[in-house]
Amino acid sequence: MKNRRQSTLLLLLLAGGALCAVMLAGALQPDAAADFSQKNLPPCLAHPFGTDWLGRDMLGRTLAGLSLSIRLGLLTSAVSAAAALALGTASAALGGWVDSAISWLIDLVMGVPHILLIMLISLACGRGFWGVTLGVALSHWPALARVLRGEALQLRQAPYLQMARRMGVPWGRVLTGHIVPHLLPQLWAGLILQFPHAILHEASVTFLGFGLPPEEPAIGVILSESMAYLTTGRWWLALFPGLTLAATVSLFALAGERLRLLLAPASAQE
């Protein structure tokens, strides 16, 4: 690869392309029909991922599940990144009791393990699609919010911001003109890095039975169904859907990591 900027761009394009392809494939293809003459086939040419106990093509189910997961992941990570930006900057800009309250809230949410918190929120919404969506969206902001708050607090002490304040620039302008643009690289990278987490947690909570209903072809549903068939040696039911999920997620994790390095001024020129 020629240089890091080009390879990062390529990676981002690849991730975006994969995203669109999977979403299109998931949206366009018809529901995998049950065909009992084709049931329990190990992977072959006609069914690269094999078929399940109802004779449904696992490739189609995986793509449909992944497409749903990606849409959910995008939505939830966008919501939690926005929440993190709002709370992080408010905490740093307003200071005083607002800062204490937000820090307390961050500590509070971080004190409960993600899975448990998502389970609780999902219960509050009566499980299902909205339960898992809200659960993932409302539990992922604290880490990013803490990073952004720390950054913004440090920034407040920066000489050029002190100067701007002394020269009478109002807080609102300092916030939108100086602080937020400075936080954007962190925010973008945080957003992309949160995306895989969101997908993984969505799959995990669905796997536990608190998420999407069994008739939805979500990855978590597919994997938890496959558990019942593991002991009879149908490994393909768990292996391929999981691998596709892992590949998608790691593509995004990698792209986010590269973007973070590139956007941070200290490491951009390496």
């Binding site: 993984l200 593991l230 490994w235 997620v249």
Partner: peptide
């Protein structure tokens, strides 16, 4: 590490289960 952290913990468990137990 990147691969492992992009796999769900329960799936990793499933894989180990398939290999070592089944």
């Amino acid at each position: 590490c990147l691969t492992v952290s992009s796999t769900p913990a329960f799936w990793l468990g499933l894989l180990l289960l398939i290999v070592f137990a089944v």
